Simulated assay, not measured.
Amino acid sequence: MPQRREPDPEKLRKLQEALDAYAADEGPGLIDHEYEKAAAKVRERALRLLDQRSRSRHELRERLLDPRRVKEGEDGPDPDLVDDVLDSLTRSGLIDDEAFAREWVRQRFERRGKSTTVLRRELQDKGVSAADRESALEQIDESDERELARELARKKARSVKTVPADRSARDKELRRIVGVLARRGFPQAMALQIAREALDSRCEELAEP
């Protein structure tokens, strides 16, 4: 999970200024006070969610409209109102899918060992556009990904305590290493090659006097 972040005071200031300007321009007689009251409630929930961690616009919208999170006896927020609030937060820079995607990729790659295949799918699930997904994934080049796979394979190979006695035993250990890489979405050919290298290296270590 991405690291909890503190709200940006500058962004919060801009948001408040925008709200004050809106109220001043419209005049008290033209403001739909019921709408503004409902919007303020949605805005407060959105800011609390963003205070916990950064989120994509789609993810935030789904959370705000989730009927399971509506108190019993209350109506859920109107989708159009939620969109208006999210538009306001986007204009203020509090929602930024491009920045969110870049941070998601950086942290999930470095801390969770996720491949670009998995990261691309995760961002897609969060409603991040194809352009923002690919821009974020440009942070990782093929050599970075291959080195991560090697590190994961070496770590798993260290669990092998004795040189496999026969081909069957060796294949069993190889499958375990490949499985670690496959679960993180590394391509099959790459995973098999790197797993073999890691297992060979581990067997050489164990065979040394």
Rank of each mutant, 00 (worst) to 15 (best):
R4M: 09
R4I: 13
R5F: 05
R5C: 07
E6T: 13
E6H: 08
D8F: 03
L12I: 11
K14P: 00
K14G: 13
L15T: 10
Q16R: 15
Q16N: 12
Q16K: 15
A21Y: 14
Y22P: 07
A23M: 12
A24Y: 01
D25I: 14
I31E: 06
E34D: 15
E34L: 13
Y35T: 11
Y35Q: 15
Y35R: 14
E36C: 10
K37N: 13
A39V: 07
A40T: 12
K41S: 14
K41L: 14
V42C: 13
V42Q: 08
R43E: 15
E44V: 09
A46F: 13
L47W: 10
R48C: 04
R53N: 10
S54E: 14
S54G: 11
S56Q: 03
R57Q: 11
H58Q: 09
H58I: 04
R63F: 04
V70P: 11
V70I: 15
P77T: 12
D78Y: 05
D78K: 09
D80M: 04
D80F: 03
L81D: 15
V85W: 05
L86V: 10
R91H: 11
S92H: 12
S92F: 08
G93K: 13
G93L: 09
D97H: 06
D97Y: 10
A99Q: 12
F100R: 01
A101Q: 01
W104Q: 05
W104S: 09
V105R: 00
Q107K: 06
R108Q: 15
F109M: 04
R112D: 10
G113P: 11
T117M: 05
V128Q: 01
V128I: 07
D132E: 08
R133C: 10
R133G: 02
E134G: 03
S135T: 10
S135R: 14
E138V: 01
E138H: 05
E138L: 06
E138K: 04
Q139T: 03
S143H: 08
D144S: 01
E145K: 06
R146S: 07
E151N: 09
L152D: 02
R154N: 09
R154Y: 12
R154M: 11
S159Y: 07
K161P: 02
T162N: 08
A165H: 00
R170D: 03
R170L: 04
R170M: 04
D171R: 12
E173Y: 01
E173N: 02
L174Y: 06
V180M: 13
L181S: 07
L181V: 08
G185E: 06
P187W: 00
M190C: 02
Q193I: 01
I194W: 03
R196F: 02
R196I: 03
L199H: 04
L199I: 06
D200I: 00
S201P: 00
R202S: 00
C203Y: 00
A207K: 10
P209G: 12
